[in-house]
Design a protein around this nucleic acid. Structure first.
Lengths: 358, 358
DNA sequence: TCTGGCTTTGTAACCGGTTACATGCCGGTG
DNA sequence: CACCGGCATGTAACCGGTTACAAAGCCAGA
């Protein structure tokens, strides 16, 4: 904030259009257009002439005009509940990978968990993109589809609803939570408390169901269920409650972010993980392995899902055949130090065998 | 991948245009346009009539066509070296905040540190956006400006170059590194090693300069300088080298990501931070406070910079007066446990007094 | 009744590309 | 020489909005 000067409406260079090129090259706009695109119907000589003039004038076709004419924007719209945090960061990495691969632009919006914002964003964006990748755990597919109105192909993320979209990607949250819980039980933990996600979030509900089912299977009573909202702070708060009352043997947080908050609160209370309490999370965000102790969690190929979602959306846009329906990703149990002593080496008897990492 | 079916080119609903609305409402397209925008020159009665028809037909104006006509896309293009990791995640949060505030879309691209990709992305994007926010530490402002050609306002991030853009935002890397180093010296550490960023990165160079200057000021010889690239892995590798040879009293990593890698390697080697080696980073990414031990670092208001950059870019787009030049952000010394015993409470005698957090 | 001015609406050009169709030019054949 | 086919190029319509300008309608005042 040091320069007190005021910018005089900077002089923008008026952009050079295809008609300028045509005039200078003394040909018609059609010929210029044909020369710039690959079209075979133009002589090598004229093509070179036109290209030289275009380069001299530093002509860059106007993307918007091109889109209007071609009815193709080469842009995929992405609507996420949020854009920050390790989870979305990983997801965005995958989306970028996919987009870059298919030479698509990425138009990014966040709904901040508000239905109204999501609908507004979709309406604003649907005529600027060729396809949409949408993740709105708080909204059911019907509202999203209504806002999109079939104007463009729609891919849903983290949803199993396929009645309102072409393809959806989902994580098997039930199985993931089941396996983590079974692992904790196998480690010898008797009372396991659960920090849940927001109750109106379908994924959060499935994780809770998996937690409960694993207890039923092991004929063991589940511990307390504390309510969280998937954010670090709520994990911190929930652990604070637990520390104040009777401590469980293990805590299973419905995602890694809350597990991190939890870990922080436990440390503040002078407790050691896993000696005093064991801990597990869900997602395997990149930081999970760097925590102290490294976090046991359900590994989800977050970036990979993002990449595939874009790929799939692009195929739909191009009208290529695509296997429709819901693509379910099975999380992998990632066993690290935070879950504590393992009574038997092969204790986790889940269908997806656990893997010791890092 | 369960559904083996193949999507038959889904039947998209042909979009309804302003001419459809005009026809049904039995008025001219001009009147429809006027009714939809606020224009005063239309009777309340006709406006209501038109709006009702538009709603019935579920008419949504075509964004692209609107942009072409208005020469305004309500979109800000953002080009970053990468989109993932805690640092960019924080930055994107700020960018989103700013964009949302000014009702702008965000067109996001990553250059992956490649000059050619950056230039290609800028050319592809410059005709689709009203303004650009660009961060390319590897490219000097001139190349960026050449690719943009003054087509739209340009704001540079993490650059002090103002000769090629309207406004630039920068962090005072020199002062930040100077203060962290001075703090480490004040803590009583004699030999302090430095893990640098990539040598062709201007910010990395400034941090190294600050590190060296603090040693000169304290009349103390700086330790070894190991080469990193700002990524976790390189911090891990560098610490591996140090562990193999003679261990310093403290390690100062040029950013937090490398400090995290470093911490991981030290823990693997059975060393305790700060008892065996002290550690400090730079950036204060959100996770820094949750590490064990919490990381001493130079706090940069990452999201705030992103927000201000968008705000500023939007003001430029709108032709509003804006204080031009470079806006320099002074990092704040954030003292946490990783830097070890503090010999005197007010040891850090820097201009920006340190603050004990969390 | 006529005129002038104000308000509301319509017509058509424009934004900057693409492309269907028309045109002109060429050489080859009957 | 007339005719035809094929190729290179030009003309103009089109994508779907906005808006300058024209025109029409209305009312008040002379």
């Amino acid at each position: 904030m040091e320069a007190g000067d005021v910018a005089p409406r900077t002089n923008r260079t008026a952009s050079v259009t295809i008609r300028d090129v045509a005039r200078v090259a003394q040909v018609s706009v059609a010929t210029v257009s044909r020369a710039l695109n690959d079209s075979q119907t133009v002589t090598a000589q004229t093509r070179n002439h036109v290209l030289r003039i275009a380069r001299e004038l530093d002509f860059v076709p106007h993307g918007g005009a091109r889109s209007l004419s071609l009815r193709r924007t080469d842009t995929i719209g992405v609507l996420l509940p949020d854009l920050h945090g390790e989870y979305f960061s990983e997801l965005i990495r995958g989306l970028d990978l996919g987009a870059r691969n298919s030479r698509q632009h990425l138009l990014l919006s966040a709904s901040h968990g508000e239905v109204s914002e999501a609908v507004a964003a979709l309406r604003a964006v649907r005529s600027r993109v060729d396809g949409l990748v949408v993740m709105t755990p708080f909204v059911d597919g019907e509202l999203v589809a209504a806002a999109v109105k079939g104007a463009v192909p729609l891919v849903l993320l983290n949803s199993r609803d396929t009645s309102h979209c072409d393809v959806s990607f989902a994580i098997d949250n039930y199985a993931g939570a089941f396996n983590v819980t079974t692992h904790l039980i196998a480690c010898g933990h008797r009372r396991i408390d659960f920090i849940s996600g927001p109750p109106d979030n379908l994924e959060a509900r499935d994780r809770l169901r998996g937690f409960e089912a694993a207890h039923r299977e092991a004929v063991q009573a589940p511990g307390r269920v504390l309510r969280g909202d998937f954010r670090e702070e709520s994990g911190f708060a929930a652990a604070g409650q637990l520390v104040g009352s009777e401590l469980p043997d293990a805590i299973f947080a419905a995602n890694d972010a809350m597990a991190i908050g939890c870990l922080h609160a436990l440390r503040n209370a002078g407790l050691q993980v896993p000696r005093d309490v064991a801990l597990a999370g869900f997602d395997d965000i990149p930081i999970a392995r760097f925590l102290d102790p490294p976090l046991t969690t359900a590994g989800v190929a977050i970036a990979e899902i993002g990449r595939q979602a874009i790929d799939c959306c692009v195929e739909l846009v191009r009208g290529n055949p695509v296997s429709i329906g819901c693509r379910l990703f099975a999380p992998e149990l990632v066993i690290r130090a935070s879950s504590g002593r393992q009574s038997r080496p092969d204790a986790a008897t889940s269908a997806t065998p656990g893997r010791i990492r890092s």
